[in-house]
Nucleic acid binder design. Sequence first.
RNA 1: CGGGAUGUAGCGCAGUUUGGUAGCGCGCUUGGUUCGGGACCAAGAGGCCGCAGGUUCAAAUCCUGUCAUCCCGACCA
Length: 566
Amino acid sequence: MRYTELFCPTLREIPSEAEIVSHQLLLRAGYIRKSGSGIYSYLPMGYKVLKKIMAIVREEMDAAGGQELMMPIIQPRELWEKSGRWAVYGDEMFRLKDRHLRDFALGPTHEELITSIVDADTHSYRDLPLLLYQIQNKYRDEIRPRFGVMRGREFIMKDLYSFDLDVEGMNESYRKMYQAYSNIYNRLGLEYRVVEADNGAIGGSESHEFIVLAGSGESVIVYCSECDYAADVEKAEAIPEEAINTGEAALPMEKSATPGQRTIADLVEFYGLPEKRLIKTLIYEADGELVAVVIRGDRELNEIKLKNYLQVNELAMAGEERVRNTCGGGFGSLGPVGLQVKTFADREVENMINTSCGANEDDFHYINVNPGRDFGAAAFADLRNTVAGDACPACGKVLKETRGIEAGQIFQLGTKYSEALQATYADRDGNPQLMVMGCYGIGVSRTMAAAIEQNHDDNGIIWPLSIAPYQAIIIPVNVNKADQMEAAEKIYSELLAAGVEVILDDRDERVGVKFKDADLIGIPLRVTVGPKSLAEGKVEFKERQGKESELVLAGDICKRILDLVK
RNA sequence: CGGGAUGUAGCGCAGUUUGGUAGCGCGCUUGGUUCGGGACCAAGAGGCCGCAGGUUCAAAUCCUGUCAUCCCGACCA
C-alpha cells in the first residue's frame, strides 16, 4: 500500500474525549472513529488489526474442533422468555419492536439462540459433542461505556458454545478451549495470565479468565512466582502469614490509657510495635445488623469476601454514632474484647500473640491480647485482600501482583440453559438427557485495545508482528530524489511479491513527519532509504520496539524482513 | 441511575464573569524557499458558537428547556 493512497487520518493532538492510552492512540493513529457513546467505526487500519486477531482466533477454534456459524443480531423475545432472561437482563439489553409491535432484543450474548438451534436439529447421542462458534457484534447497553473500544456498547466478540453428552464431555471441551485460548494469546504476542474466576450464579463448575497484563488494567491479579497459580486479588485465597512472634509466651492482658491515639499509625508510634502486631476492628452493617470484623493492622478487608461469607445483600461501614451507642467507644478505640457485637475475624488473627486492640472506651486500649483466651469470634475466615508477598495457595511460594485487562473468559455452564430450553438428546437407551454446555468468549475489539495498553511508548503504538496492520514500512527520505525512490520502489515490490504487508511512504513530506506517523501507527519494521547510506548501497533498518537502527545492504533487506515475518 | 464537568472550524483551545455579531495554534488549499525526527514565508478556504424557545435595539455571552459527550461508582468480553 502506498501511503498516499492509504486512508489513515492521523491526528497530532490527543482528542480530549479519550482518557486511556489505547483510546487516545486508536483515535490519533486513525484506527477508529466514534459515532456515539461506546459505538465505534473501525477505519481500514483498525479493521485490518481486527481481521488479524480474528484470523488467529478462527484458526485455533477450528483446530480445536470448532465449527463457525453466524447467528442473527436480532433475537425474538420468546427465546429470552424461555430462559427467564428477558426479565433478568434488565436495562443492559437493547430492545426494539418491529412494525407489528413484536419485541426483539439486540443480542447481548447467544446462549439462548444457539441452544435452541442445536436442540432443534440434534436428536441423538451420536450427534454430540458439538463446538459451535461465531465472531459477531454484541450489544450491551452498558450503564457507563468507557475507555473507547475497551468497554463499548457494540463490540466484537468471539463466542463458542460446547454441547456434550455429560459432564466428562464438558470437561474435555473445556480443556480443549483452555488450551486453544492459551495458544491464541501466545500467538497474539501478548503477555497474559490465566486466572481462576468466579462463575457467579452458575455455580459449581469451573471458570477462567484470560488477563492481558497492562498497568492500566481494571483487574488486579496476583500470580505465583514459581507455579501457574494466578487469581484476581478479590478472589484469591489469602494464606495467613505465620505468626511473627511464635514461641513468645502469652502475657496477661492489660488495659492501658492511650490518650488521643486513634489510628493504627498512632499506636505503632505509641507502643513501638509494628503494624502487623496490632489488630484493627471494623464495624459493618450487614443487612441492617451490626457485625464486627477483626483483621491484622496492616491488612485490608475484602468486602466481597466478607459479603460472600456472611451471605448478605447489603454491606456498609456503620456510622460512628450507632457504633458508639452499641460498642461503647468511637472509631479508633474499638476492639473485640468484651464486644457485644457478633464478631468475625480474619483467620490470620487466630495466630497472633500478645497483640493490641481498642478497649471500646475512648482513649483506652488493651495490650497483650490473645485471641481465643481474651476474645472469641463467630468464625475465623479468609476475609482480607491477598497482596503481593503472600504465600501461593497452590505451592506456598511468594505471590506477585500485577494489573491486567480481562480479554477472554471460559465457563462451564452445565445444564443451566439446556434445562431452561429443554435441549435434550436421546441416549443409547432412547431416554432423553440434557445436553451439558460450556461457553467461551473472547473480546476481539477489547483485545485490540489491550494489545495497545500493553505495547506502546510516548510516540505511539508498538504492534506485535502478529497483529500489526502492516508488518513493514519503507520510508524514502526525499521522494524527489530519483535514486532514493528507485531503491525504495525496488524493495517495496520485492516485499510485496514475497507476501509481506508493507507500506511505501511516498508522501512528499519531511522525514520527521513520516517517522512520527510510522511510530504513531505502530508498524513493527521500518526501512529508511536515505542519501547517506544509499551512497554505500545500504538502507537503514529499525524495529519499532526500541533499539538502534542498523545499516543493511539494500540487496539483503528483504531477506532480513522475511526472516522476521515468517 | 446518582455525583462532577464539557459542547465554539477536522483536532486542541481562548472568548461567556462585564451582551455589540467570532479568534488563536495545529491541520487543509495555492505559490515559493527548504528537506534525516511533526520546517519557514506569503496568500487563502473553512464555523446557524450542540439544538429549541425566551429576554433584549442587539445573544457564543443572560434565562428556561432539551440533546449529546466525557470522568467517578454498581456491571462485564
